[in-house]
Design a protein around this nucleic acid. Structure first.
Length: 147
DNA sequence: CGCTTTTGACCGGCGC
DNA sequence: GCGCCGGTCAAAAGCG
């Protein structure tokens, strides 16, 4: 398991926002993940940010991590429900769902086609529950949004 | 025994 | 309507 706490707290933070606010928030801090660094020293950057999802309730954010292991620890528990080869990428895409009952957050994980040492993780939706105990033990409140 | 992963089937949207 | 494509289902297998 790769340690990537700096990044993942930010992701968790982001997912607490409403979809309606997403575009506005993204504009105000377009590179809020840019300088996050995981324990191995890899620097990551935002892949996508709050593109307009008019009409849809989901929020979506993707980020890139240079990592051998694509199973990054983000404090949530996920169940894999699919795997697909997508066009133009020799690497498979994996689909996960949050295991908490009633929580419809999904994520997909795939390696970059240009450089397969990078992992792209895309989160979709908002958790309807707090993050599990590990985050709480670290004082997750510290990372909650200011509003 | 209760979960998770695996994997091909299935499905719906979209372009032609 | 048909086929491609991305996303999801679900049965079976795997695992602690």
């Amino acid at each position: 398991m790769e340690e990537a706490d700096n990044i993942l707290f930010e992701i968790d933070d982001y997912l607490l926002f409403d979809a309606e606010l997403e575009e506005q928030q993204a504009m105000q801090r377009p590179f809020f993940l840019q300088n996050s660094v995981d324990a191995s020293g890899s620097t990551t950057g935002v892949e996508g940010r709050g593109e307009s999802l008019q009409g849809k309730r989901s929020s979506r954010v993707a980020f890139i991590t240079q990592s051998e292991n694509e199973n990054l620890v983000d404090g949530y528990k996920w169940r894999k429900y699919g795997k697909k080869m997508v066009k133009g990428n020799p690497n498979p895409r994996n689909y996960f769902r949050c295991t908490i009952e009633g929580c419809c957050v999904k994520k997909r994980v795939e390696r970059m086609k240009e450089d397969s040492s990078y992992v792209i993780t895309t989160y979709e939706g908002r958790h309807n529950h707090m993050a599990p105990s590990e985050l709480a033990q670290h004082g997750a409140a510290h990372f909650l949004p200011l509003n």
